[in-house]
Simulated assay, not measured.
Amino acid sequence: MTSGQLLTFSGVVVLGAMSPGPDFAVVVRRSALAGRVHGMATAVGVAAGVLAWVVAAATGVAAAVAVTPVAFTIIKLVGAGYLVYLGVNALRSAWRHGSSVPSDPDNGSTVESGLWAAFRDGLLCNALNPKAAVFFVALLPQFLPADAGLVSMLALSAIAVAITVGWFLTVANLVAAARRAFSRPATRRLVDGVSGALLIGLGVRLVFTSAR
């Protein structure tokens, strides 16, 4: 691969990472309501999901998912269900805990439920999104020839992961820097309500997504 191809690939991945979607919504909510570290853990989870899809695309697994209606539909429905689950929990938090900062993981809120939960949310939001499979299946063949070796695959994987984690770590830190504004109960309730509605809407939209 030439440096021009690497730059082009990087540019496309940057645009994909910056596109508004469930990954962005989850990172922003975690960063705003749980803090910088939780937001960064979610960002790393998203990057791990991207790594999984890049490797799957390079090895042909993602292509099989994209062209197999049953596999695509199963991943799509599971992913949509998970987004709706996150959205409903956010709305419950807005309704029940808008006047206080949740600290007990058993009190019905998922905001302060630990770094593993933050990482898991980012990972599953990306890994259960078949649109990511379609994206990388369409993208990688333009940069990886049929006889591409392990080094080329690892190089593109590393670039995709580095760009993704860099972007979402930036988002997490920027949102967390303004966290003082989110300490107000009304603002926290607004963030929960808006992010919950957005996640549910994205989940419903995912249900009607096709591989083409």
Rank of each mutant, 00 (worst) to 15 (best):
T110G: 01
V111C: 01
G114E: 06
G114N: 05
G114P: 08
G114T: 11
L115K: 04
A117W: 11
A118D: 06
G122I: 08
A127E: 13
L128S: 06
P130R: 12
A132N: 13
A133V: 06
V134I: 15
V137P: 08
V137F: 14
A138P: 01
L139Q: 10
L140R: 13
L140E: 11
F143H: 14
F143C: 11
P145V: 08
D147W: 09
G149R: 02
G149V: 03
S152P: 03
M153E: 12
L156T: 06
L156Y: 15
L156C: 08
S157M: 06
I159Q: 03
V161R: 07
V161C: 05
I163H: 05
I163R: 04
T164V: 07
V165Y: 07
W167H: 13
F168T: 01
L169M: 04
V171G: 04
N173P: 00
L174C: 07
L174I: 09
A176D: 02
A177L: 07
R179D: 14
R180M: 03
F182N: 05
R184T: 09
P185W: 05
A186H: 05
R188Q: 07
R188S: 14
D192Q: 07
V194T: 06
S195Y: 00
L198M: 09
L199S: 05
I200C: 02
